[in-house]
Simulated scan of single mutants.
Amino acid sequence: MVDVSSLTSVHDRDARRAMLRTDDGVRIEAVYEPSTASVTDTAVVVAHGFTGSVDRPALRRAALALREHAHVVSFSFRGHGGSGGRSTVGDREVLDLAAAVRWARELGHTRVATVGFSMGGSVVLRHAALERGTGAHTDAVAAVSAPARWYYRGTPSMRRVHWVVTRPVGRLVGRYGLGTRIDRRDWDPVPLSPVEAVPLIAPTPLLVVHGDRDPYFPLDHPRSLVAAAPEGTAELWLERGMGHAENAAGEELLARLGGWLARP
């Protein structure tokens, strides 16, 4: 469901905002930006990382770069930015992504690809596995700086994330310091992990991108994701000198990502 008075055609060159409603009733803010490319039908839906939002500079920069290759839908996950609800840190966020993909299709795009960063990377992987054969399916998926498994605490950066998510004081820091409202409830049941989702994605094209200086997830995470895919169905780009997620994605990488996502 889209809370807008009217939806113009995809040939209208003006960007627009909307409030989407997920299957569990959460209102999600989203932005549609037509491509600057001369001819393309592909829409790319961009999923940000934990504590991000549709208006954060890093996501705006990524959306601008991707517009050179495809139409772009960006949005704020639940508990982030102007969206409602509380963050479940990768669980019910699949419903947010599904709402954004449906909106892209309602705007007339027959080919929709997804790209996610960090937490958003885990979400696009699970979405690609769980929404196959539905009206919210993706035609290609790219996960950047994504974890392979849940509850990872092997780096100082991830131990800080777990403190923010699991401790009452941490959630206050998340809300007032990071602008992220976090659900205090534990997962029940524990959702399908990214590495468990990967075998279910094929034959949808899959790209895994990871930096060799990622301070959150070491290289065994992207390698595990690609190893879980049926042979020949996933690509791995290991980026030299890259850190973590959309903040570390340079212009050259974003251009390559846009080309990969937009190719028929």
Rank of each mutant, 00 (worst) to 15 (best):
S5C: 10
S5R: 14
S6F: 13
L7H: 01
S9E: 13
D14V: 05
M19N: 10
R21A: 07
R21G: 03
V26I: 15
I28Q: 05
A30Q: 01
A30F: 06
Y32D: 05
E33R: 09
E33C: 09
S35K: 02
S35H: 04
S38R: 14
S38W: 10
T40F: 03
T40M: 05
T40G: 03
T42V: 15
T42W: 02
V46H: 00
V46R: 00
A47R: 02
G49R: 01
G52E: 00
S53V: 02
V54S: 08
D55E: 15
R56G: 02
R61I: 10
L66P: 00
R67N: 02
H69Q: 12
H69N: 07
H71P: 03
H71T: 05
V72S: 03
V72L: 05
S74D: 12
F77A: 03
F77G: 00
H80L: 06
G85H: 06
S87E: 06
T88W: 03
T88V: 02
D91T: 00
E93D: 05
L97W: 04
A100F: 01
A104C: 09
R105T: 08
T110Q: 15
R111L: 10
V112W: 06
A113F: 02
V115T: 13
V115Y: 00
S118V: 04
S122G: 15
L125T: 02
H127V: 09
H127G: 08
A128M: 11
R132T: 13
T134G: 11
G135N: 12
G135K: 06
A136C: 10
H137Q: 14
H137W: 11
T138P: 03
D139L: 08
A140T: 06
A143E: 05
A143L: 09
S145K: 05
S145C: 14
P147Y: 09
P147F: 11
R149P: 00
Y151M: 14
Y152A: 05
G154F: 12
G154H: 10
H162M: 10
P168F: 13
G170W: 10
R171W: 13
L172K: 13
Y176F: 15
Y176K: 07
G177S: 13
L178D: 03
T180M: 15
D183S: 14
D183Y: 04
D186Q: 14
D186R: 14
W187E: 12
L192P: 07
L192D: 08
S193H: 07
S193A: 15
S193Q: 15
V195G: 04
V195D: 11
V195Q: 08
V198I: 14
P199T: 05
L200W: 08
I201A: 04
I201N: 01
P205G: 09
L206D: 02
L206M: 13
V208N: 00
G211D: 06
D214I: 07
P215G: 11
Y216K: 06
F217E: 01
P218N: 07
P218Y: 07
P218E: 08
P218V: 04
D220V: 04
H221P: 01
P222G: 04
P222F: 01
A228Q: 03
E231K: 10
T233L: 08
A234M: 07
E235P: 00
G241A: 10
G241E: 13
E251C: 05
L253R: 08
A255V: 05
A255P: 01
G258H: 00
W260V: 10
W260E: 01
R263W: 08
